[in-house]
Design a protein around this nucleic acid. Sequence first.
DNA 1: TCACTGATTCGATGACTGTCGATACAGAGG
DNA 2: CCTCTGTATCGACAGTCATCGAATCAGTGA
Lengths: 112, 112
Amino acid sequence: MSKQEPCCSPLTREPLSTAQAAELSRVFKAMGDPVRLRLLSLIASHEGGEACVCDLTGVFDLTGPTISHHLKVLREAGLISGERRGTWIYYRVLPEALRRASAVLELDEARA
Amino acid sequence: MSKQEPCCSPLTREPLSTAQAAELSRVFKAMGDPVRLRLLSLIASHEGGEACVCDLTGVFDLTGPTISHHLKVLREAGLISGERRGTWIYYRVLPEALRRASAVLELDEARA
DNA sequence: TCACTGATTCGATGACTGTCGATACAGAGG
DNA sequence: CCTCTGTATCGACAGTCATCGAATCAGTGA
């Protein structure tokens, strides 16, 4: 999961290497599902910056296993991390992952 | 393809609506493939801000139809547009799409 | 120890996707 | 008009993915 490479100057400045593209595409692929995007935003915007799974399952017309699957995909993409505290498991976003993804998409204002 | 909605305040500030998530996930899904990410960066960083398909096919070990398919996916996601000039077809990125995607991922610095 | 609840893992299935070769289309130049 | 080259579309196939129900694991509290 994401050794944090010099990754990357913006897309618009210079072509991504094959390795950079492979790494980044895993992150964007994880975000390329509406349920996962909403999960991400629900977790990120939840008070305290974290949400337990029980806060999330009720929001969707999906079974527990399906939500669990999506959380795993986000986890393996390095976008969130989970921690058990007693009965519940709390997830929070990893801000650095979001920051990197956002930075890569930034426009090179010297051009445009 | 992307009527440009109020979309969106950052993911981290408030939960995405179902509609916003659906719209955004199409963009991220398009970027969720290493070939398409490299295509995007090759086009964006190419001199003049545009590249013809002939500049792109040679870079990959993939057939013309496959490259064409990926370009179509990027086009339908609203990330690039193509224009025929004589024999060749030139693609350029739509900066607004990139800007929106980048903005959604930005961190709410008031929290963190 | 035994149930009960929250969450994950497993296995199956239908849908989607990346890739290709074959074909079709579009413009340039005989 | 015909042919050649660049690009897109079509149809097929193999691999991946989202989803579910069933089973499993982890902690809590009787």
